[in-house]
Design a protein around this nucleic acid. Sequence first.
DNA 1: CGTTTGGTTGATGTATGTCAATATTAGTGG
DNA 2: CCACTAATATTGACATACATCAACCAAACG
Lengths: 250, 250
Amino acid sequence: MSASARFALHRPEFLDALVRGEDKIAELTKASSMTFAAGASVIVANTDHRFVYRLLQGWACRSRQLADGRNQFILIFLPGDLFAVKSMFVTRHTDAVLAVSRIVVERIHYRDLHAAYVADSDIATRCIWQVMEEERRLHSWVVGLGQGSAEERLALLLLDFRGRLAQTGAIGPTSLAYNMPLTQAQLADHLGITAVHVNRVLKSFRECGMVTIRDGQVVITDIDALAQCASPLLDAHDRVTPECEGAQQT
Amino acid sequence: MSASARFALHRPEFLDALVRGEDKIAELTKASSMTFAAGASVIVANTDHRFVYRLLQGWACRSRQLADGRNQFILIFLPGDLFAVKSMFVTRHTDAVLAVSRIVVERIHYRDLHAAYVADSDIATRCIWQVMEEERRLHSWVVGLGQGSAEERLALLLLDFRGRLAQTGAIGPTSLAYNMPLTQAQLADHLGITAVHVNRVLKSFRECGMVTIRDGQVVITDIDALAQCASPLLDAHDRVTPECEGAQQT
DNA sequence: CGTTTGGTTGATGTATGTCAATATTAGTGG
DNA sequence: CCACTAATATTGACATACATCAACCAAACG
């Protein structure tokens, strides 16, 4: 399933194009499967890179490392995401893309994808949708980092992961558990807090009976409470969650 | 669109295409000048909006307001920026665009711009460049909010404003003063800290002899110290400082 | 096995938030 | 032009969320 139930809300006519674009891109990339070990760099920071990727298995992230050792995970990519779409327009990548877990990707040279992008509107739609979706997530994350407490951010993130996995069919639409390969230190790098504090917040979540994380598995034990916790940061779009959840929103 | 159109961003003649695109878009929008008072909403949050804007005078921002009153300025737009380019692809805008000061804009219906975008590679280049540039700034701001101290963020922001104003010719390439209509409370909303703390940091900057802000005018009195302060957050791109001003974006 | 990596917890420090008071400036209407 | 009001800026006293440092445990691993 293509990743875009929500997009259809605003542009129903594009949903089909998205699904077709997804399939067509899959067709174009299918001979190029590659595997990266956890921690490997798919794209090295501050280098030119000429490929666009489709993430098939595992999680990846766009990350910036500062000279003094600080580290920020800017975006997290889940299976089904395209990444480095911008290679089509700008070859220079300021930030690295790292494999968070062992990942399987397919890739395509930007010239080839660009040719297809120009020739086939389904492919263009799929690419543009990816860019728009990333922009949407970046906006939300700026809001979360700027205004959210550690608890709010973490709750939002765990719900976001669940929603995205459900959307692509990686888990059932109402499933409350999923595999999450990020370590607490990596969560910290994305949340903009320290690993120690991530640990403490997770402990409090666990003790509230909201979420448990063990062995890379997230189990949401009280999604209403979790949604309640994240709710100050949710925008209208994020509130469109599977009704079956009974998630309480305000 | 011609196949070569979208390659412009990789190439040396990229700058020419951008300038031509700028002019062509100006031509398309020129009959549509509008003015908004400071504080007015150009785009209301969670509404459909069908125009793409060119900011001619004054500053604007994309802003999200949370239900509990918290507020985050996601991006700041300066004269010369296009904004709401995404109207071309997604009409729904989650976040508001507000006039920070009194602004003058021109606008174009997304269908008309899209038609031009498809027909004219210069226009496509200019639009795509805007999207890529915004993405770059969002990435940097996520890093700043996630990892930077209040001082680092503010120093980065003041330098960023200066650089962008210099780039569009609003101030001389080496000028160290510019008008900045944001109040301390608005700076706080963008920086993700409180207005009181903005005030304190500005005071310390003033007392260090780095920057003075008065009557909406920023005067950088020690740009090296300021750059030093922001430097942990600077990526390779941002390090382009006044003396290398000829350099253009990747 | 020892070594490493990730997780957990406590004691303590600090950057930043909150509250509150007072200047200062900007607007507004008379 | 003044008097009145609302915004904005400034500053101090105090509170707190989160960071830092340090120890220890458990599981993975070579």
